[in-house]
Computed example of a mutant assay.
Amino acid sequence: MRPPLWPVLSVIVCPPVGPWSELRGIRPSRVWPEDIRVIARAEAERLELPDYDLWLFDSRTLVRMHIDESDTTIGVELINDPDRVLAACRARDAATAAARPTVEVWAHTTSRDH
Results as ranks from 00 to 15, higher is better:
residue 1 M to V: 10
residue 2 R to S: 12
residue 2 R to G: 09
residue 3 P to M: 05
residue 4 P to C: 05
residue 4 P to N: 11
residue 4 P to E: 12
residue 6 W to E: 15
residue 6 W to Y: 14
residue 7 P to Y: 04
residue 8 V to H: 11
residue 11 V to E: 13
residue 13 V to E: 15
residue 13 V to F: 11
residue 14 C to L: 12
residue 14 C to R: 14
residue 15 P to T: 11
residue 15 P to C: 05
residue 15 P to F: 02
residue 15 P to G: 08
residue 16 P to S: 10
residue 17 V to P: 01
residue 17 V to D: 07
residue 17 V to F: 08
residue 19 P to R: 07
residue 19 P to V: 04
residue 20 W to F: 13
residue 21 S to R: 14
residue 22 E to V: 02
residue 22 E to A: 10
residue 23 L to Y: 06
residue 23 L to E: 06
residue 24 R to H: 14
residue 24 R to E: 15
residue 24 R to F: 09
residue 25 G to P: 10
residue 25 G to D: 14
residue 25 G to V: 14
residue 25 G to S: 13
residue 25 G to Y: 11
residue 26 I to N: 07
residue 29 S to W: 09
residue 30 R to V: 11
residue 30 R to Y: 06
residue 30 R to K: 07
residue 31 V to A: 08
residue 31 V to W: 10
residue 32 W to E: 13
residue 32 W to Q: 08
residue 33 P to L: 05
residue 33 P to H: 05
residue 33 P to V: 04
residue 34 E to F: 02
residue 36 I to R: 10
residue 36 I to H: 08
residue 36 I to C: 08
residue 37 R to G: 02
residue 38 V to S: 01
residue 39 I to Y: 02
residue 39 I to D: 02
residue 39 I to P: 03
residue 39 I to C: 02
residue 40 A to C: 15
residue 41 R to C: 08
residue 42 A to T: 14
residue 42 A to K: 13
residue 43 E to P: 00
residue 43 E to C: 11
residue 44 A to P: 09
residue 44 A to R: 09
residue 45 E to W: 04
residue 45 E to R: 07
residue 46 R to I: 12
residue 46 R to C: 10
residue 47 L to F: 06
residue 47 L to N: 03
residue 47 L to I: 13
residue 50 P to E: 07
residue 51 D to N: 09
residue 52 Y to D: 02
residue 53 D to E: 11
residue 54 L to S: 09
residue 55 W to N: 12
residue 55 W to Y: 13
residue 56 L to T: 01
residue 57 F to H: 08
residue 59 S to M: 07
residue 59 S to Q: 13
residue 59 S to P: 11
residue 59 S to V: 04
residue 59 S to F: 06
residue 60 R to V: 00
residue 61 T to E: 03
residue 62 L to P: 01
residue 64 R to D: 08
residue 64 R to Y: 04
residue 65 M to R: 00
residue 65 M to T: 01
residue 66 H to F: 00
residue 66 H to I: 02
residue 67 I to P: 00
residue 68 D to Q: 05
residue 68 D to Y: 03
residue 68 D to T: 00
residue 69 E to L: 12
residue 71 D to C: 01
residue 72 T to A: 02
residue 73 T to P: 13
residue 74 I to V: 14
residue 75 G to R: 08
residue 76 V to R: 04
residue 76 V to F: 03
residue 78 L to E: 00
residue 79 I to L: 07
residue 79 I to Y: 05
residue 80 N to H: 12
residue 80 N to P: 07
residue 82 P to R: 06
residue 82 P to A: 04
residue 83 D to C: 01
residue 84 R to D: 06
residue 84 R to G: 00
residue 85 V to L: 11
residue 86 L to V: 01
residue 87 A to H: 01
residue 89 C to I: 14
residue 90 R to F: 06
residue 90 R to H: 13
residue 90 R to V: 14
residue 92 R to E: 03
residue 92 R to P: 03
residue 92 R to K: 02
residue 95 A to Y: 05
residue 96 T to F: 14
residue 96 T to N: 04
residue 98 A to G: 12
residue 98 A to M: 12
residue 98 A to Q: 11
residue 99 A to T: 03
residue 103 V to R: 07
residue 103 V to C: 09
residue 104 E to G: 10
residue 104 E to N: 14
residue 105 V to R: 11
residue 106 W to R: 13
residue 108 H to V: 05
residue 109 T to G: 14
residue 109 T to V: 08
residue 111 S to R: 15
residue 111 S to N: 15
residue 112 R to L: 07
residue 112 R to D: 15
residue 112 R to V: 07
residue 113 D to I: 04
residue 113 D to L: 08
residue 114 H to T: 15
